Simulated assay, not measured.
Amino acid sequence: MIPLTIDEAKTLARTLRDSLPNGVDLTHGQSLDLLSRTLGFADWNELAAQYKQPSFGPAMPVLRVFDVDLARSFYVDVLGFTIDFEHQFEPGLPTFLGLSRGDTSLGLSEHHGDGTPGSVVWVPTRNLDDYRSHVTRGAAGKLRPGIDRDAPGGPTMTINDPFGNEIRFCEPE
Rank of each mutant, 00 (worst) to 15 (best):
C170K: 03
S109F: 08
D33Y: 02
L39N: 07
S119G: 11
L106G: 08
P117K: 14
H134E: 11
T136F: 00
K52V: 05
T5A: 06
D33I: 01
N160P: 00
H111A: 09
E8D: 15
S73T: 14
A42C: 05
V135C: 08
P162W: 04
I167H: 02
G164A: 02
F74E: 10
F41D: 09
A48C: 05
P152V: 13
P117R: 15
E171S: 12
F163G: 06
F169M: 08
V78N: 04
Q50Y: 06
L12M: 14
V123F: 07
Y51N: 08
G29R: 13
V120F: 11
T136N: 03
Q88E: 14
E46P: 00
L106F: 07
G138C: 05
E86L: 13
Q53L: 15
T104R: 10
D150W: 01
E110Y: 02
F41Y: 15
D161A: 04
A13K: 03
P162S: 06
E86M: 12
D18S: 13
Q30E: 15
V62D: 03
A48N: 11
F89H: 14
D148K: 05
I83F: 04
A42T: 12
P54R: 13
T158H: 01
F41P: 05
L93E: 15
G80P: 06
A9T: 10
I159E: 01
N165H: 07
N127M: 06
L93S: 14
G92E: 10
D7L: 14
Q88M: 11
V76R: 15
S55V: 10
V68N: 13
L12T: 01
D33M: 05
L35W: 03
T95F: 02
N45L: 11
S19V: 01
A13Q: 03
P124E: 12
H87S: 13
A139G: 12
H112E: 15
D33K: 06
R132T: 01
P152H: 10
E86D: 06
V123R: 09
R64H: 15
I159W: 05
G40H: 06
E8I: 04
M157T: 02
V123K: 07
A71C: 07
F163E: 10
V68T: 11
S133P: 00
D103V: 09
V135P: 02
I159P: 02
T15F: 01
